[in-house]
Design a protein around this nucleic acid. Structure first.
Lengths: 103, 103
DNA sequence: GTCTTCGGTAAGTGATAGCTTACCGTAAGT
DNA sequence: ACTTACGGTAAGCTATCACTTACCGAAGAC
């Protein structure tokens, strides 16, 4: 999931989809790469659950998957929580060893 | 920044550092790769501002940078916000065209 | 029916990224 | 002073990955 957003192009696509659903061709127009390349990126994003797709006539519309985004957010929050805990722990330990503010 | 955490190994390192500061050698022991490889990953993480380092005797201790983590979080929140807006927009548009809950 | 639009898939290529070993600098111990 | 511990950097190799063109299937327009 994180690796999926690791690629800048995929990030750009996901970024674009965050503004609303879009068909493949329309996405490709705003990017400096070919349409098949966009398709391949979309496949990756879809496989990790960050986007969903559905047919709409002859085109295929992609949009961000809220559930996938939630997973990503939760994942990031874990880092956040643990890092915060580590900070506090370090701070208290630091406090213990120099509550003498002389140096 | 996102590309920095895109690599699984770097993710593992960052994950480990989220539990508290650690010197390079100690990190390398818990990973299936060589110590120089860990050093290289740490350099990447440091360059994007996700970790900081300081000397401690003969070892170099790394720890997650709270500011960098905050940036990452803010970045993710942007996706979240915009996606949410897109969802609501789509929902209201959908509602307009079939407020007849028959089918 | 035919034609056109749209997009996924296959095959092939080139660049990049992660890994290794070898080496060197720096700080502490003796 | 010498030795050891620790870790950053260089050089080189390999595999992965993003991209291209070519092709084909599916759904609408005529």
């Amino acid at each position: 999931m994180m690796t999926a957003l690791g690629d800048p192009t995929r990030q750009a696509i996901f970024d674009r989809l965050s503004d609303g659903p879009s068909p493949v061709g329309e996405l490709a127009e705003g990017l400096p790469i070919s349409r098949p390349a966009v398709s391949q990126h979309l496949k990756v994003l879809k496989d990790v659950g960050l986007v969903t797709d559905h047919r709409e006539g002859t085109r295929r519309v992609y949009q961000v998957d809220g559930a996938g985004l939630a997973v990503l957010r939760t994942y990031l929050d874990q880092f956040w929580q643990r890092s915060l805990a580590a900070f506090e722990k370090a701070a208290s330990e630091q406090k213990g060893k120099n509550d003498d503010p002389d140096d």
